[in-house]
Computed example of a mutant assay.
Amino acid sequence: MTKLYRSRTDRKITGLCGGLAETLGFDATLLRLLVVITTLFSGGVVIGIYVLAALVIPSEPWHGGPHGPGPGYGGGANPYGGKWDHQFGSWKDWKRAERHYRKAQRYGWGSPQQAGGYEAEYAASQAQAAGTAGSDLDDMMKDIEKKAMWKEIEELRAKVAQYEKQQQNQTKGEI
C-alpha cells in the first residue's frame, strides 16, 4: 500500500485531492467535482473534514530540483554551480520556482535541457521561410502596402487643400 501525500504537482488549493486521486487511481478533476457536490449536499461538513485532512496529511516529499532528481538531490551541487539552497536563497524562492515549474508542465513547456531542440526547430523553420517562395510573397505585400499608403497620402493632401481653401474663404469674408 502506498502512503497518502498531498500532491506537489497536481494541486489547486492544498494538493489534497490530487494526492488522494493519485493514491486511489482516480482522475483528480473528477474527485474535485465529487468533493464540491458532496459539500453542497452535506451542508458544508466536508469543508471542515477537508481542512482537517489538509492539516494532518503531509505534503509529498521533495525529490530534487525543479526538474526532478539530479545533481542537486540531497543538497549536493547543482548544474548551475553551488548548492541548491544558495541558488534559491530562501524557502519562498524555492516555492516560487516550484510554482513556475508546475505551470510550465501544465502548458507543455520543457526543461532548459530541451530548449536547444526547440531553438533548432525554430531556426530551421525560419531558414525555410526565407526561401524564394516567401520572398515573392513579401515583395507582393510590400507593393500592396506602398500603394495603400500612397492612396492615403493623396486623400490626406486633398483634405488639407480643402481645409486651407475653407480657411482662406473665411478670412476673406471677415476682412
Rank of each mutant, 00 (worst) to 15 (best):
T39K: 04
R99H: 12
E154Y: 13
L40A: 13
E152W: 07
K83M: 06
E154M: 09
K12V: 14
S135E: 13
Y107A: 03
L20C: 04
F26R: 04
T2V: 08
S135F: 08
G48D: 02
I47K: 10
M140K: 14
G89D: 03
Q126Y: 00
E154L: 11
L55Y: 09
V36D: 10
I49K: 04
D138V: 06
Q126R: 11
G68Y: 07
W150N: 13
Y5I: 00
A120I: 03
W91A: 07
E121A: 10
V56R: 11
G117T: 00
V35C: 08
G110L: 00
A54P: 05
K83D: 03
R8K: 13
P79E: 00
L20N: 00
F26T: 04
Q168A: 15
D138H: 13
P61F: 01
A148V: 06
A148Y: 14
K142A: 12
Q168N: 08
E152P: 02
R6F: 03
T23D: 10
L137A: 08
S111W: 00
L4F: 01
E60L: 01
E119G: 01
V46E: 11
A161P: 10
I144R: 14
T38E: 07
V45C: 02
E22H: 09
K146E: 12
M1R: 14
M149N: 04
G131I: 02
E164K: 15
A148I: 14
Y101K: 12
L137S: 12
A120K: 10
T132Q: 09
K165A: 15
G19P: 10
A161K: 14
A120H: 11
V160E: 08
G19I: 05
T38R: 03
K172G: 00
D93H: 08
Q166F: 05
A53N: 05
A130I: 04
G75C: 06
G134R: 00
G134K: 05
P61I: 02
L30C: 05
I57C: 01
Q87S: 07
V160D: 12
A104K: 13
G68F: 00
A124Q: 13
A130M: 07
G44A: 06
E152Q: 11
P69F: 06
G116Q: 05
L30G: 08
I49E: 12
V35Q: 01
S111E: 12
